[in-house]
Design a protein around this nucleic acid. Structure first.
Lengths: 152, 152
DNA sequence: TATGTAAGTTCGTTTTCTGAACTCAGTCTC
DNA sequence: GAGACTGAGTTCAGAAAACGAACTTACATA
């Protein structure tokens, strides 16, 4: 199977990967969450090739994660903004960055996240929507244990 | 810049992507969390080419996310197991799958996660380690606002 | 001897990525 | 009004990676 057909797999994770699973895409989204909007900002910050940036932004627009907005008529200029769908990826990226900070050896300056509601620096913690307790890999089971073999 | 040099970028997200950002890698990890261990299980479930599975597993072992263990001496057979570092990706993947379930249009059967501690079906919720409240994109700021332009 | 199995590797072809240059529409400076 | 500049891309040739199928290795079983 081709990677380009990944969206045919009926699994939430595969669906997610079909949208954000390309190289550079997550770094583009990282920059968008930091406030980047213009083509050249994405290109200079990620240092991916312009062709890749172009293809990735188009894909993200097509999948509703970003939108292309004309912000100037003469000359015509466009910028890219996160949609709600794109903004909703923030917890995913925060969790992923936190994994890297705590589980990868290379020392990287942590992001210094602050929760404005309480004012504290914080770690993102994944909890159970029902009891509020921290969810660990050991305390999760699946009701319909997902079939392992790819469906024929 | 090449994707293969992505690990040179001093950003937690880039570091994470250098480990788990390749096509198929996250699906391999998904299967590993469901209990897959053998080469052919990963290949049949993901349906990626054997060469890709081989390269990805080797990369994951190199980066300490999985380990290659001989489980039979005659004939010599090896399997792949998640390390603690790999297991720690579970919250990341759960959060990502939940994003797909709630924010992507295509209807996919949700995973049916159950929290064994409280016994309920649940959604993963990202909360603040300090006050316990749900963290939304709007309530997070960064202390050292990450520089936008790539450092020269 | 023949068949099967698990874990890969190899190979020729197709697809994608890369970096640099180029385009386009319009503005700004001399 | 000529030439340089800007932002948002596209184009192109060469390099790298992915693809599927076949092959290999090392044994076990019939």
């Amino acid at each position: 199977m081709r990677w380009s057909q990944i969206d045919a797999i009926p699994c939430p994770l595969a669906q997610a990967m079909s949208v954000i699973g390309d190289s550079w895409t997550l770094l583009i989204l990282r920059d968008a969450m930091r406030g980047a909007r213009k083509f050249d900002e994405f290109q200079q910050s990620t240092r991916a090739s312009r062709a890749v940036i172009s293809a990735r932004l188009a894909h993200l627009v097509e999948r509703g994660v970003m939108e292309r907005v004309q912000y100037e008529a003469h000359p015509p200029r466009y910028e890219y903004r996160l949609t709600n769908r794109g903004l909703a990826l923030q917890p995913v990226m925060m969790t992923m960055a936190h994994w890297a900070e705590t589980h990868l050896p290379k020392p990287v300056r942590s992001a210094g996240r602050r929760h404005t509601t309480c004012g504290h620096k914080f770690r993102p913690v994944v909890t159970c929507s029902e009891c509020g307790e921290t969810v660990t890999p050991e305390t999760v089971t699946f009701d319909r244990p997902p079939a392992l073999a790819g469906s024929k």
